[in-house]
Design a protein around this nucleic acid. Structure first.
Lengths: 106, 106
DNA sequence: CTACTATTTAACATTATTGTTAATTAATAG
DNA sequence: CTATTAATTAACAATAATGTTAAATAGTAG
């Protein structure tokens, strides 16, 4: 199991957070596509991906010479669970959350 | 506004995460009380508190010679909001979340 | 096999982070 | 004023993180 601090550490960097958000929005992406957006070198991106992978935040799949990366939902769920575990602390009342739920879905 | 990456960075350390969790559970605590639990020196704890403060995760209040620290709910809410913003990605169905809500509250 | 493309690993420099002990600041007690 | 308690800042060492360029690895094409 990945420790929560490792998950947080993986997201404690603008470049990595942006990569993760992009993957969540666009789905699986090859390393090369992620290099385009990041204003850093390929090797740097490659290592950021390694960090994300070691933290269990993304998974890798090979397709020919490409490496396709995608976010692992479990990792995000772990964060969500943690905030939920402490919901009583930061949430004044249930109203806000319920409103959010009712708003977006259906 | 604190950047989300700063919030994650603040929680990317076992010592700090433990301190935050303890403050959420027990409420406002003097720096000294946090030193007890952490197996590191006072100055080290002091700097961890500074990191948490700079990240907007905790707030400080003076009472005599003591410094009372407490977690800022907004910070936790920011994380929760982020996971919620990407809920559609990590959440298979609404079932799980709704179950959680109905379970703990009334 | 050679060349080309995609990506990672290696080697290295720079800057951040974290811990320690010693010194400083600040409030209160006598 | 001096001593005591609470906590922080200073100075320093050790380790980790991040970026760069050059080299290596691995498919695919001809």
């Amino acid at each position: 199991m990945t420790r929560l601090t490792d998950t947080f550490a993986a997201l404690a960097d603008q470049t990595r957070l942006a990569m993760v958000e992009r993957m969540m929005a666009e789905g699986e992406l090859p390393a090369g596509a992620l290099v385009q957006d990041a204003h850093i070198s390929g090797p740097a991106v490659s290592r950021h991906l390694k960090v994300l992978r070691n933290a269990g935040l993304v998974q890798q799949r090979a397709e020919g010479t490409r490496r396709l990366y995608s976010v692992r939902p479990e990792a995000l769920r772990a964060i969500s669970n943690w905030t939920m575990d402490h919901r009583s602390f930061w949430q004044a009342g249930l109203d806000r959350l319920e409103a959010m739920l009712n708003e977006e879905d259906t």
